[in-house]
Simulated scan of single mutants.
Amino acid sequence: MPEQNRNPQQSGPVIVITGASAGVGRAVVREFAGEGVRIALIARGRDGLEAAAREVREEGGEALVLPLDVADAALVEAAAEKVENTFGPIDIWVNAAFAGVLAPFLETSLEDYERVTKVTYLGQVHGTHAALRRMVPRNRGSVVLVGSALAYRGIPLQSAYCGAKHAIQGFHDSICSELIHSRSKVHVSMVQLPGVNTPQFDWIRTTMPREPKPASPPYQPEVAARAISWAARHRRKTVMLGWPTLQAIWGDRFASPLLDRYLAWTGISGQQDKTPVSPDRRDNLWEPVPGDRGAHGRFDSTAREYTTQFWLSRNRVAVGIGAGLAGLGLLGTLVKGRRR
């Protein structure tokens, strides 16, 4: 849409966030919310979207609630058009929506498998397509793909989700090359997340006897939100968040067969807690679960609120220079010692 659609009284960016009603997406909303910021909120659950919109307005921003399913490309395109008609040109688009199933492959129906793929993979493709159609002609804008350590290392019980995240990673490489070829200033980044303490473990579809849980102590969603916000504003292709993410990615590169065996022994029980699955448990694979679930899951007592890895990643140039200077200083000390 033309630049004159931008409200002259507002100076903040126009941001679209999918999966904005809960979990990481909800934390991203809170991270971006502030005076003058205009945020379009996309998800299926209206209760969570309305609550997120109130939080944006309380921080002095404007919010546009857009209840829709990102698996539907036409709805995503129409939403992007409405955002620009309402707020003006989109500056940042964050793809945080996903769906999952915790079940062995042969216990997952092909309809559920397709559903996970459409939401988790094609949902990000649809969002990126709608964003780039508008950003590329203007030669500005930022798109963030929300990935996972599981984009590189698959684990048992989550083959649909892992396959979708692997697909996003390949899609990201292709899009980056095309933007470089066209000398575009539009940037597409991907943030690879570790396990995060979100409501997903309470509403993911499962065929297992016990309630889902993270395979290792998760991070709080605010940690993920800070990384996503940073990626949206810096021209870093990939942001890997947390030491467990690095361990999974590099472990798979150097010892993939060993990881297969390790996960075969630990990955099934490690993703279930001691609580039996309730017969009346509801999942959100095909329909949203009513109510506002917020950003956090039930693992606050074990969730981590900080990672030194992300600090080192953000400041890697300074850290590299500091390490180099320290090395030179040590070398100088050794040389002087030998001369004596």
Score class of each variant (00 low, 15 high):
R153H: 08
D273Y: 09
T302G: 03
V37Q: 06
L259C: 03
R339D: 07
R293T: 03
A224L: 07
R281L: 08
W265H: 12
L41P: 00
G12T: 08
K237T: 08
P199F: 14
V37D: 01
T333V: 10
T206E: 10
F105V: 15
R26S: 10
R54N: 05
V317R: 15
R138H: 05
I268Q: 11
G23T: 00
R38F: 00
W286N: 13
L145D: 11
L157M: 15
Y121C: 03
P276S: 13
T18C: 06
L325W: 11
V65W: 00
H129D: 14
T266I: 07
N85Q: 12
H126D: 03
Q10T: 05
L68T: 01
Q158G: 10
D280A: 05
Q192A: 15
E178P: 04
S313L: 12
D280Q: 12
P209R: 13
A99T: 00
E3N: 06
P89Q: 10
V94C: 09
T307Y: 07
E77G: 04
P212L: 12
L246A: 13
G19Q: 01
C176M: 14
Y306S: 05
V56T: 06
S313K: 05
S148V: 08
V116T: 03
N315G: 02
A224G: 07
H181N: 10
R314C: 13
